[in-house]
Design a binder for these strands. Structure first.
Lengths: 108, 108
DNA sequence: GCGTGATATTGCAATATCACAATTTTATAA
DNA sequence: TTATAAAATTGTGATATTGCAATATCACGC
């Protein structure tokens, strides 16, 4: 079929999967690392640093934005991205809690 | 194109992405939860509990196996799956370290 | 051996994802 | 207003993923 049957899973399962899916591509891992290293980073810098075309980077940025991990600041012609640390922390906890709970369940 | 240009990213970025990708589907989240809750679980139980067809579950199990997260025990006709806790712990650390390092970079 | 039950594999259709060229939008600078 | 530069959007082709029916495989009991 090609599409995921999300309705048969609960909200939490879909949430963990959604967050993880965004991290499931090395370009997006690289983008997040570059933005956090440089604090502020525009699209062009990412294009040069990573070596994918501008529309491709823009697309990956949109995926990361969808889960709220990015902040934007307009400065002249440039659009600078930075990490939404609060949201990053939420993602970390959601994913890590899944691991921890799984580990605890195994040990009971 | 449709395929990921993995060669332009480093090993660590691909590793984080690989682990995350496996968690990037709610069926696989659900499978991991069910197996860890029941300690041992065969394919049929997962099929009944989740409501996807047997080949679909089998396929998702294969994805989870690829990153080493599952152990198998044959008992008669049944094949029981359990969680490889050591590997789960490694995955947890790899993914969580990514989050923590990102957070630290933002704060510097 | 033969049937049975459990799981993996194969083949296929539908959808999603990845990557990029071309274009559009937006905002500044001249 | 016009040029320019940055980034988003659109359109497209190639590949990957999701899901399932049909089939194959494998291990047991008879």
């Amino acid at each position: 079929m090609g599409f995921t049957k999300k309705h048969i899973f609960n909200e939490h399962q879909n949430l963990v999967a959604n967050y993880s899916k965004v991290l499931g591509h090395p370009a997006r891992i690289s983008i997040i690392q570059l933005i956090s290293d440089k604090k502020y980073c525009n699209c062009n810098e990412l294009v040069k640093a990573i070596g994918l075309a501008q529309p491709t980077i823009s697309q990956h940025l949109a995926e990361i934005r969808k889960i709220g991990l990015l902040k934007q600041t307009v400065k002249g012609k440039n659009l600078f991205y930075s990490i939404n640390i609060e949201k990053l922390n939420i993602c970390r906890r959601v994913v890590n809690d899944f691991f921890v709970k799984t580990q605890v369940s195994c040990g009971k």
